[in-house]
Amino acid sequence: MFETPTTPRSNCSCEASDRINRDSTGSLRWKIPVSLFLAYHVFGLLIAPASVPPSSDLVRNSWLLVGPYLQLVNMNQGNHFFAPDPGSSTLIKYEANLKDGRKITGQIPDKNVQFPRLLYHRHFMLTEQFGRMGDYEPRSRALMASAFARQICQEHDAVSVDLTQVTHFLPDTQWIRAGYSLEEPELYLEQKVGHYEWNEF
């Protein structure tokens, strides 16, 4: 617990400064290595976001020095929030065929299903990541689509599921001023991802 100091020793900044003076004289042996580590750490914090493309060879080579350490402490961060531009959103729509023959539809993420908001964001980040993979990481994209399908089948006890990637584009101000809403069909682009059978998992 915290308390109000009752004696000068615990209250006064002089005592601290005195300790510092004593500290400063005989502590170079640990201060120099710690300083080097701090410089390395801060250097890493600066290099990690700088290595996000486009970046120079110098920065990419520097990343090799600090990358393993930053990955270990989970500080290999880009910090590019809503950058370079706020972009369109990616959703996954699904149509699941249940064992009893019924069909259900849904989407990931869904504000009405995933609560609290943080859980909704977790799902949203999954589909955003799926959208980012695009055609550049076909293997990861296939694995992720398969994981989506398997999870949906598990949740709904379905025998098969069809997945569709939906891209929700952002409207300009003119679009809204012209009387359209954010939900107009023209703002959505649907691309079929695939058909998945529970038996295949």
């Binding site: 976001p49 996000v52 910090n79 590019h80 809503f82 950058a83 370079p84 531009d85």
Partner: peptide, 17 residues
Amino acid sequence: CCVYLWAGFGKLKGTTW
């Protein structure tokens, strides 16, 4: 400071910012 610096620099790569 690093977080904000690179959040800002990252945005400067775009046009809408």
